[in-house]
Design a protein around this nucleic acid. Structure first.
Lengths: 178, 178
DNA sequence: CTTAAATTTCTGTCTAAACAGAAATTAACG
DNA sequence: CGTTAATTTCTGTTTAGACAGAAATTTAAG
């Protein structure tokens, strides 16, 4: 388990590149891609050999992927080493990532926005415009996170049906608007 | 225009930090936050003074923000310098960013996935499992981008009505599941 | 057209994160 | 329990991107 097909290499390289565009370390994303495509759990030395990175770097990266919740440690009969596998269900995986993003970035942003608004109300130094801006941004995040909070629990089947309705929903619900 | 209130400082610092989590340079995100909160367009030297960064770095950052489509150059009567302003409508701004993300990352990812799938079909070296994984991932992106393609044009009023319905939509549309 | 202002590009420096290897710690086995 | 295997943490090095200042280019004004 150290030979990658050209297809696998291509995907792993691309996925790593995309990771960096979303603030994720390239190697972390590459390890994820490798695990995602692996039919069986891999142990760290497999990953070392396959991707050609240091053992300690693999250890740290796996820790991060576990922190995101998309990779988990499993044990294999007759092998004392930790093995790792990626989540397989794509919809579920993206939901887990979204949840983590919400927890790490969006919720703290909302908290900061709310603090800023409270402070701006008391503080005459901050102009009215800034306060309005912050309120509008907070409203956006509140609205979108409330929405997400409701649909995140939908089963994939309901979600895909919903998504496939697309524009038709507008008419059905009489949402109107030009 | 070089004095920031504590509230503004707080938000700018936080927004910059959040930018890095999404693959955006901290200074770029901070400049955006500053422009977002400014009632009037700012010129580059304003930004230099206010944030304390080099003029050339401001120039490069503004170029990037313009590339994202969320900042534009404007001219002010009686001043030969370029001034810059951020988009103000939050919903619109996030739509612009999403569009750009789709163009820069998601569309290319779909292209790579499709190529990989074609190659995997021809290539006996790539196992069946990998091919199935790639198909499932491609299907996810195809479904979600098709959905986005339809709702991105909705006016904000329709969009917020839709979002505020949240879970109720499921019953109305008879989506079932769980 | 010339000059000054303004902006961008280039280049070398800096910085934070990524990385590899050594050391320390933990876990498994006999 | 002692030994070995496995993993994690630590530390110094490397790297890529961020950054500042100088040089080049472009634009505006007289």
């Amino acid at each position: 388990m150290s030979k990658l097909s050209p297809v696998q290499q291509k995907f792993i390289l691309h996925w790593g590149e995309m990771g960096t565009k979303w603030g994720i370390n390239r190697t972390v994303a590459q390890i994820h891609a490798l695990l995602f495509m692996s039919p069986k759990p891999l142990h760290a030395d497999d990953i070392v050999e396959t991707l050609g990175v240091a053992r300690s770097n693999v250890s740290t990266s796996l820790k991060e992927l576990q922190g995101w919740g998309i990779v988990r440690r499993v044990h294999v009969m007759g092998d004392q080493r930790d093995h790792f596998e990626s989540m397989k269900d794509v919809w579920e995986m993206f939901r887990v990532v979204l949840d983590e993003r919400k927890k790490r970035e969006i919720d703290p942003t909302l908290a900061v926005l709310r603090e800023c608004i409270v402070e701006a109300e008391k503080d005459k130094e901050t102009d009215e415009y800034t306060e309005q801006r912050l309120r509008e941004l907070a409203a956006f995040f509140e609205t979108t996170t409330a929405w997400y909070g409701q649909i995140r629990t939908w089963p994939t089947s309901a979600l895909t049906k919903f998504v496939k309705l697309g524009d038709k929903i507008r008419k059905v619900l009489g949402l109107g608007g030009g």
